[in-house]
């Protein structure tokens, strides 16, 4: 099986972890929140989501560059909601997704608290979309986006300047054929909040359910279209894919296209600025004849 370069260093452990833990402890003690959602070490040097409900659990919290999983997905889960109000250890991609969710009416003001570290190592406590939008740009690593990318030799078809359509087709055909339709990508994506995903709707059955070439292709095209202009590039989907399909390349490509064409970028404000729900009379139409 082709291999995906995953960042497994675990090196850059955040030095200010103690400050984060301290603030989390205060929030738990004061009863402001009932659970802290963060990351902890799992098996195989993997990180896993971690739910701390008692102050003593907080020792296990970690935050390093392996923490790609987007914790925002847990905020919508009923079993997490049942625990009470949550504070979330926040990375810039997570905060971007909260902004986009707020724009789409899927994050309510003060629904949760986000604990983020600024570049001086101070803990920021954010809960409204406005606060998030205000600090997001200045957070360390807020612009960097380097979720998993397949090694260059695996994707000659996609390397810059490739005009070989058939090679691209062959590449993606091969990638998508490995999809086992487990929908881990969907589960990992904070923007995939629909209770009834298109792929689960029959009457009509738009997308064939079985894991075969055509169904897989249609599923991945739909996934990309549904995330076009909404994907905040956290990379959680690729991280979650057991088959190692570089899903976020597709999303990233569309995000870039949309920014070039329409100047819009998801996850930058809580005001809805969805490229596909607005238009301009001067949109380019060279392809329409």
């Amino acid at each position: 099986m082709a291999e995906t370069v995953r960042r497994t260093s675990g090196q850059t452990v955040v030095n200010d972890m103690e400050a984060l833990r301290q603030r989390a402890r205060e929030l738990l003690d004061a009863g402001t929140v009932q659970v802290i959602i963060g990351y902890a070490n799992g098996s195989n040097r993997r990180v896993r989501p971690f739910f701390a409900r008692r102050p003593e659990d907080l020792e296990r919290l970690i935050l390093d560059d392996r923490c790609v999983l987007n914790l925002a997905v847990y905020l919508r889960k009923p079993e997490v909601k049942a625990l009470g109000k949550a504070a979330v250890i926040a990375t810039p991609p997570l905060l971007r997704s909260i902004l986009q969710l707020a724009a789409e009416n899927h994050y309510q003001e003060s629904e949760a608290v986000f604990l983020a570290l600024d570049s001086a190592g101070n803990v920021l406590e954010l809960s409204s979309a406005e606060q998030i939008a205000g600090v997001l740009g200045s957070l360390p690593g807020s612009t960097g986006q380097d979720a998993c990318v397949p090694s260059a030799d695996r994707m000659p078809a996609l390397s810059a300047g490739s005009t070989d359509r058939q090679a691209r087709f062959a590449f993606w055909k091969q990638e998508f054929e490995r999809c086992i339709r487990c929908y881990a990508c969907r589960a990992a994506c904070p923007m995939c909040y629909c209770e009834q995903c298109l792929v689960d709707s029959n009457q009509p059955q738009w997308i064939p359910v079985a894991a075969h070439s055509i169904g897989n292709l249609e599923w991945h095209i739909s996934r990309a279209m549904h995330l076009a202009g909404r994907c905040v590039n956290c990379g959680a989907c690729s991280e979650a894919c057991p088959a190692g399909i570089p899903l976020n390349l597709v999303n990233q490509f569309l995000a870039d296209r949309i920014q070039q064409e329409f100047g819009q970028k998801a996850g930058t404000s809580a005001k809805l600025d969805y490229a596909l729900s607005v238009f301009s009379g001067s949109d380019r139409e060279t392809f329409i004849k």
């Binding site: 078809a157 359509r165 279209m225 569309l254 949109d283």
Partner: peptide, 13 residues
């Protein structure tokens, strides 16, 4: 929508 869709199709070959 077509512009985005068309770009996507092209990207996927």
């Amino acid at each position: 929508r077509w512009m985005v869709f068309r770009s996507l199709l092209d990207f996927l070959g």
